[in-house]
């Protein structure tokens, strides 16, 4: 008996020029069937021009529960943003 059919995450490129976005997930025994199911499930109304399927088990995610503030290092580097810098008056194209 099929003990556990793997879970796949589905990403769809809606139109040429856009990045693939996560649209949902589905179960399938292998990648080829996952792709076919994804087409039938997530693009019945021409929602995409390209599909990626990724085994959910292959995704490593950061956890919002990790209270050690995973994203904190970004907060003290305001100089990464262009608004940090004062541009002298009269300077163009900067």
């Amino acid at each position: 008996m099929t003990e556990h059919t793997p879970l796949w995450e589905v990403f769809v490129r809606a139109r040429r020029g856009l990045a693939h976005s996560h649209v949902g997930s589905l179960h399938a025994p292998d990648a080829e069937l996952a792709l076919r199911h994804a087409r039938d499930l997530y693009t019945r109304r021409q929602e995409g021009v390209s599909i990626w399927v990724v085994p959910a088990s292959a995704i490593t995610a950061s956890s919002p529960d990790e209270k050690d503030a995973f994203f904190d290092p970004a907060a003290d580097k305001v100089y990464r943003h262009p608004t940090f810098y004062d541009v002298p008056e009269g300077v163009a194209h900067l």
Partner: peptide, 24 residues
């Protein structure tokens, strides 16, 4: 096409439920 959509809706929703930690 309509009945196929209903199957699709069921599957979107099962997928949403599974994110809460219950299996299909």
């Amino acid at each position: 096409a309509k009945v196929q959509d209903e199957a699709g809706h069921g599957l979107y929703l099962y997928a949403a439920a599974e994110t809460l930690g219950i299996s299909r």
